[in-house]
Amino acid sequence: MKGRFRFIFIGFMLTFLAAWIGLVVLPVWGLGNFKQTPDPKTGEMIPPEFTALEERGRDVYIANGCIYCHTQQVHSARNRTDIVRGWGKRRTVARDYMNHGVAQLGSMRTGPDLSNIGVRNPSETWQLLHLYDPQITSPGSIMPPFRYLFTEQPIGSDGTSADAINLSGENAPREGMEIVPTEKAKALVAYLQALKLSEYEIPEAAAARIDSKIIDSEIK
């Protein structure tokens, strides 16, 4: 091997290029051009796009790193318990994410999967309380409190604001004060409410359901 560096260089760039075509070009070509389809019942185009508010919520989700504890991907019942746990009615497929902008599939399940949290728990009151301090709704949780997404303000002359959260006991605000969610907290909850990935009757939905034994029997 005397001085044949050019040879080596071409070699290691070619091996790289091969994988680059296989794992970058192919996915972009095969998975990067989904179009919405009409819902077979309502004719609405699905999966829907996020509203501006929900999109801001997604940005809050990203900025605060929810992805490091929560996934957004439902796996089939064949080898996981996602469906049994009620994390979704069917496994998710690539098209489900087409309008997500920045995919938040995640790789860690310190907390439950959130693909369908908008169906499982759509309550804004619960979500806000949980974000303010998970110990209130889920004692023993290790999810961090997001109190910094709320502000304390004096109660106005016409009584507590409509969006003040209901805190009692040691969490209660000081005398004459109330805790209200910031715009960020509201947007985040709107985003969570919009997460219903397994709900849409996209073309792949039927096949995805077959993967899920439990749902299979329900359908029959």
Binding site: L23, G32, A94, R95, Y97, M98, A103
Partner: peptide, 12 residues
């Protein structure tokens, strides 16, 4: 690229 194509590139 469209979101569904992102995770493969991401993990690669």
């Amino acid at each position: 690229v469209q979101a569904p194509a992102q995770p493969p590139i991401n993990w690669w």
